[in-house]
Design a protein around this nucleic acid. Structure first.
Lengths: 250, 250
DNA sequence: TCAGAAATGATAGATATCAATCAAAATATA
DNA sequence: TATATTTTGATTGATATCTATCATTTCTGA
């Protein structure tokens, strides 16, 4: 059997079953353990399967790298996401910024009829298979860490868009305003804000009191901020003083 | 955290990533190894995940969005993809059109240093996590069936791009030229052709002799066509007569 | 045909995972 | 409140897998 033939066989088996043990492969392909190991090493290296201890598993086209890595305050993020999604009415147009919380928002939107604009690969991925959602993807340079599109291409694409609401996530919030860690991202988000009538910011308690590299906007640029119950009262009143509505849990 | 909540979390993570190691779960859920083991045992016993040595993998159809399990001529497509990928040299810029075959091409490119431009969500997903690849995503209306961006937004974004090679897939090939099933897609692909110096078309034997709704271009617009060994000689010579190079299996 | 390169199979020590067990903590029940 | 039950976390010896190495075989190109 040729090398590529054998690897193709491994690929097929893995794809069909989702997972195979190394021993199964050794038996079925009738090659030595070492050979199969080397095949797995190669196939894993080229991104075709995922090697695991004792075998290999299939790599779907799923969200892969991005999601779930930072489960910080995930509980709070989920509750915030639910509240946010409940605000969105059928038939609306909405921009969803990239982020863990906004991805959770998207999960709650899959059954509504909406026009969604997003620069986030994970969100696009989630929504693309739902035909009730008209999905407009914002392209650009893709930032590998989070899978969002950035830069001039993204900004240009956003210029021709106008929707009712923007749901935005941020890296940090201080009395100076909103922050994110990437200047290109901030440029993109500024254009998002120009393209929407109402600016909604979702922020869990971990965001307050922290700034970041790039300043996005002052607090009063927001229309509505949605937070969890663990955000100190002092922060909420500070934001309210700027004329921004604050929606908190129950 | 409640028991069921924890198990749901394991389920979610497993489903999203296809596979998780036990150690990852211990870290992210912050429970003891024993507890997670017991959870996995339970979830495996009730058929919700498949337990593997060192972790767990997702069970059930890899519904993962777009890809069609019953794709025609998958073997041939894979071999064509391999040949195509071998042509691409490190440092190049390349446009990858959406399609089953081009997705396979992308799999072979993950370890090269490249600039990749694509309008395909599945391809973007695959490549986004590889930092050696500079990924530029073409946005636009997302066609739910296949997860590719189409329309004026996509065309505009492509206008400002110029790369060495375009790898394109087609719906059908006749003596009249290349076809695809969607007019918006064809408009987008026409701009792709303008944005590349060399046009490579990948086509398995199932494509020949079939036209489709929208005419893309005449045969002589191609520079190189890559086919499998089952394409009849008559088609290959027809294409060659138009001054197009044809690369076939060995 | 021959030499060099690549692929293969076997082995062994190091390392990680597993199942089983038990005590402590949390929860439920009387 | 006290007791029984369940859940959890830590430990341990047994077992499986991993990496690295090396001799052998197969493939490749001059």
């Amino acid at each position: 059997m040729l090398v590529d033939e054998r690897r193709q066989k491994i690929l097929n088996i893995t794809e069909n079953r989702g997972y195979v043990s190394l021993q199964e492969l050794v038996t079925e392909i009738d090659a030595s353990e070492s050979t199969i190991r080397r095949d797995l090493e190669q196939l894993d290296g080229s991104g075709q399967i995922r090697r695991t201890r004792g075998g290999a598993s299939y790599i779907g086209e799923s969200l892969m790298g991005f999601e779930d890595r930072s489960t910080q305050n995930m509980e709070a993020k989920r509750r915030i996401a639910k509240m946010t999604a409940d605000l969105i009415e059928p038939g609306e147009g909405v921009i969803l910024d990239g982020g863990t919380t906004t991805l959770e928002v998207a999960r709650h939107l899959v059954n509504k009829s909406l026009m969604v604009v997003t620069n986030s690969l994970p969100i696009a991925n989630l929504l693309a298979s739902h035909s009730n959602i008209e999905l407009i993807l914002i392209g650009g340079y893709v930032y590998p860490k989070t899978g969002v599109s950035l830069g001039p291409v993204a900004v240009d694409a956003l210029r021709s868009i106008n929707v009712r609401r923007l749901v935005m996530s941020v890296g940090g919030i201080t009395e100076k305003g909103l922050f994110n860690s990437n200047t290109l991202l901030v440029e993109t988000e500024k254009q998002m804000m120009n393209s929407a009538d109402e600016i909604i910011v979702v922020a869990d308690h971990g965001k307050f009191g922290h700034s970041a590299l790039a300043h996005l906007c002052p607090l009063d640029r927001m229309d509505l901020m949605i937070v969890d119950r663990d955000v100190p009262e002092s922060w909420k009143s500070l934001v309210r003083e700027q004329g921004v509505a604050v929606l908190e849990e129950e």
